[in-house]
Nucleic acid binder design. Structure first.
Lengths: 229, 229
DNA sequence: CCCTATATATAGTCTAGACATAAACGGAAT
DNA sequence: ATTCCGTTTATGTCTAGACTATATATAGGG
């Protein structure tokens, strides 16, 4: 009686995880569950809605609610600023700018971000250190047509990621993970061997429809990105 | 007037993305917003709760709701079965079992999964192909104390991941991404060069408190895992 | 001046009831 | 059989109001 939505959620969850309600089977409807738990239907609804968001159950009007046959396993990663990633580990953060130049966007970048011909871009190469050791190499391109103020910004002290966060209120992004090989330049910056495998994150972000930046982040060898679900 | 929670949510979102409500600034409280949008407080609450879940705003009782200074950028990845990953691309899926053996769990595995000494484990090495080309190499360990029925299961036709999904109703997992170098054995299976960088996923899963399986998945060279947010 | 009780503002949740919407079902017309 | 249409049913959402929990602010006491 008087169950909260969390009570309901965890009870249903345990019925699923224990196998009491088999994958594919139909769960009682909201009205019945509300009676069972002695609460309002809205309370059951919230519990079920969250379970559906988590990918554990599948709901359809009129058809009812079923335990998913194969639960969608979705992992949620927090992608923090490098500074926070390092400071959260209790290490001291240091930043340095390796190079800065203004170039017309190369073809691969124009394709990737759907830019017009002859678009100027600011190209930055930076390093992020944790307790003095190389942690992440950043290869950044900023679209100067959308962000002309980047031309005059000083990136020698503050990293472009932090500058962007404070300049652009919000943006949508496409992010992808892969593995790349350290070339001579990367190895030099990261203090590793040429040929080392590096975990790499690439991110393109858009603000109000037009691309503003693309970045390739290479982590030091051995880096892992971990999460639980 | 008569705004739905989606209306409210998207209106607030646009006020944030447009910079109308600056990062760090305080958003009107729920009662005021309810009056503004001409709806019930619960409707505003749902909109705001979802925005908070998305990491765009920060809410605290009494203190009110603020636009996040640096939005938590969280990416959500769906981790499908390899079969689906391949079939969704429109390619033909093929599976093969490369080796099968029963071994006492090696030290690194016992540490990783917190197993007792002398625990027996089923060790499987498999390959997943897309249109005949090597797609993913699977190095799987199954805890035979928790899943003794794996001893008699036939993994020559059905991959261990699919067998596990149908055997264990649900489980919690720890997943991590990294980059590894192809050794001779891996290169042979994946048809690539020794020394190629491979995007690698490791996953340990638990069922009702005890670890049941650990897997290391190495993708063919060049593989990317992509998402939008 | 610092510490502690108390007041207060705000988000968090619950309720009972209502109406909206999508989808499955069954029967009727083709 | 197949298509179409109304009925039914379960989820989806909204409302007005109430109570709860928590963090902050303030006033009072040592």
């Amino acid at each position: 009686m008087n169950a909260t939505y969390k009570d309901v959620k965890s009870d249903i969850l345990s019925k699923i995880t224990s196998g009491h309600w088999q994958p594919g089977s139909l769960i009682p409807n909201e009205i019945e569950l509300a009676e069972t738990y002695g609460c309002a239907r809205a309370t059951v609804n919230r519990a079920m809605r969250e379970l559906a968001d988590d990918g554990l159950i599948e709901r359809r009007r009129k058809a009812g609610t079923r335990v998913r046959a194969s639960p969608i396993r979705q992992a949620r990663f927090d992608i923090p600023l490098v500074r926070r990633e390092i400071e959260d580990k209790g290490a001291e953060y240091r930043y340095s700018l390796a190079s800065r130049s203004i170039e017309t966007a190369p073809d691969w970048l124009r394709t990737r971000l759907q830019l017009g011909q002859g678009t100027d871009a600011l190209h930055l190469v930076c390093m992020h250190y944790a307790d003095g050791d190389p942690f992440q190499h950043e290869d950044r391109w900023i679209n100067l047509e959308v962000l002309p103020q980047a031309r005059d910004a000083d990136f020698s002290q503050v990293g472009p990621n932090e500058w962007l966060v404070s300049t652009i209120p919000f943006s949508t992004a496409e992010i992808s993970f892969s593995a790349t090989l350290a070339d001579a330049a990367l190895a030099g910056h990261l203090g590793c061997q040429t040929g080392d495998p590096l975990f790499t994150v690439e991110r393109a972000t858009w603000f109000e429809g037009s691309a503003n930046t693309f970045v390739k982040l290479a982590y030091r060898p051995g880096h892992r990105m971990t999460t639980r679900y």
